[in-house]
């Protein structure tokens, strides 16, 4: 049986890679590899996963230098010479082994006003949003984010400017900006503008390149740049 040589990050920020040998199986995913290590070779290995089917966004890690969702990443597609190097997500503090601390990532969603602000109460009727309306189509293009942080981990600007809100939070803000039911558009535009917001984006497009859901946060950020610039020129910000 073929074996995989797998280097796995152990410890926190000042850790090191530990090497394991894992049996190579058909249709094996990177998450299968990590699970094999924890269940059969070293039960002290820490990692995070939940759904295993690409819905929850929990299992993202750095695989051979590139952020990926491990549950949907087949070993056959990434393990050149049957070797893997698995590390925690970049641009986030390491808790232990393959577990990154996501606190800052989700705090930035809150900073970007990533929460829906309703304008109606439960006593009002349902809002009617035409599926083919311009705003709804923009929301559709960006709404399927699973919060895996692959984009955040891949972003050069996040690495250079720790205050930068990052692609996921800005993408979320863009979906709410286009939500005709939302009542906090101006406050949200103010929250996502400027040197720590959408204007810091250099359009490197790593987020769009690596998003496992094939979203384009770069396009969402460009939309926010246009919206905030228009608001600033009108004196609304």
């Amino acid at each position: 049986m073929t074996t995989l040589r797998v280097k796995v990050w152990r410890g926190a920020e000042n850790g090191r890679f530990q090497e394991f040998e894992v049996p190579r199986l058909e249709s094996q995913t990177v998450l299968d590899v990590v699970t094999h290590i924890q269940r059969s070779l070293d039960p002290t290995l820490s990692y995070r996963f939940a759904c295993r089917v690409g819905m929850c966004g929990s299992c993202a890690m750095t695989v051979n230098g590139r952020a990926r969702w491990t549950c949907r990443t087949h070993v056959a597609n990434v393990a050149a010479d049957n070797s893997l190097e698995i590390a925690p997500l970049a641009n986030l503090p390491v808790v232990k082994d393959l577990v990154a601390d996501m606190t800052l990532f989700f705090d930035k969603w809150a900073k970007a006003r990533g929460k829906f602000h309703p304008t109606k109460t439960r006593r009002d009727g349902f809002a009617r949003v035409a599926p083919d309306s311009a705003e709804r189509l923009l929301v559709d293009a960006a709404i399927e984010c699973i919060g895996c942080s692959v984009c955040y981990s891949s972003c050069d600007v996040v690495a250079w400017n720790p205050d930068y809100l990052g692609p996921a939070a800005l993408n979320r803000a863009w979906t709410l900006h286009n939500d005709v039911r939302d009542g906090a558009r101006r406050e949200r535009l103010a929250a996502v503008a400027g040197d720590a917001g959408c204007h810091a984006c250099h359009t490197h497009m790593s987020c769009s390149e690596r998003c496992p859901k094939q979203l384009a946060p770069t396009a969402s950020i460009a939309g926010l740049k246009r919206a905030t610039a228009a608001a600033a020129l009108k004196g609304e910000l």
Binding site: A193, G194, D195, H199, A232, L237
Partner: peptide, 12 residues
């Protein structure tokens, strides 16, 4: 520098 100025710098 306030946010509006940052946006205007970007636009400029």
């Amino acid at each position: 520098m306030n946010t509006r100025s940052q946006i205007l710098l970007w636009a400029a």
